[in-house]
Amino acid sequence: MTTIIDCLGVGKSFKGKVAVRDLSFQIEKGEVVALLGPNGAGKSTTIQMLLGLLEPSTGRITISGQNSKSKAVRERIGVMLQEVRLLDTVTVKEILQLVRGYYHRPLSMEQLSKLTGLDETSLNMRTEKLSGGQKQRVSFALALAGNPDILFLDEPTTGMDATARKTFWKSIRELAERGTTIIFTTHYLEEVEYAATRVLMINHGELIEDESPDMMKKKLVIQRISFLTDEVYRPETFQGLSVSDIRLDGKKVTILTGDADHLLKVLYELDLEISEVTVSRGTLEEAYSQLTDSREVS
């Protein structure tokens, strides 16, 4: 195994406020790493430091043993950042040709359009006329333009529709099979399950988990049970159950739990007057609050 990214004791503060604290991890060649954490946890700051866009206040970061600001590293990385909007008054083809020209061994236009699903019509469109999802595809194409060994993708599927997301993750898998190292952030657990080989979780600027997706899934899968009731809610009713959060909205009660099967059984055994029971999968944000809350307690 070859270490691609080496992050050692990295910290960053902005005007005395700590955004990232003592972050240490190594990423090996070919790993697909999901960087997770609640909003404001320090994910974007971490990515920007990895890319050399922000200077760490403490610690050091190297990519294949080199400074991430070096030209050699820039030749090898591809980047999709949330903060970046496409250059306007140019066509998709023009912007791709321009950026391809920055690299020594760029991917061909054919390969780019195949990997990103950009067809001839979109290629000839002006960037400002594109839909949100199409813009993301173009950003993805820009990230791939230089035929990178390392991809940094910050919430890459935001704004994409279901089809676009599917094409996107299929291409990511294809690239991973070719040995591309990938670091991404996302709000969707499905994407982590589908693509990641490792999960790093950050909260309050600290690395709190470093696990395989299977292990993480157990911690991150959360279920949401909701029902209607006329009864007045009593908190002690649910005491002793694996409940992470209860929300009340008029007659509607929503319970977040790690074990929906058990909780449902209890609910029926209690013989409460409830109707319209639904069970659904919770979002990653809901799972974060469970995971981080339980940590703070323990």
Binding site: L51, G52, L53, R74, L81, V84, R85, L86, L87, L142
Partner: peptide
């Protein structure tokens, strides 16, 4: 271009 983040993107390219 700086406000749109394009300048930032360019810094990640060679």
């Amino acid at each position: 271009e700086r406000n749109q983040g394009w300048t930032m993107y360019l810094k990640t390219t060679p």
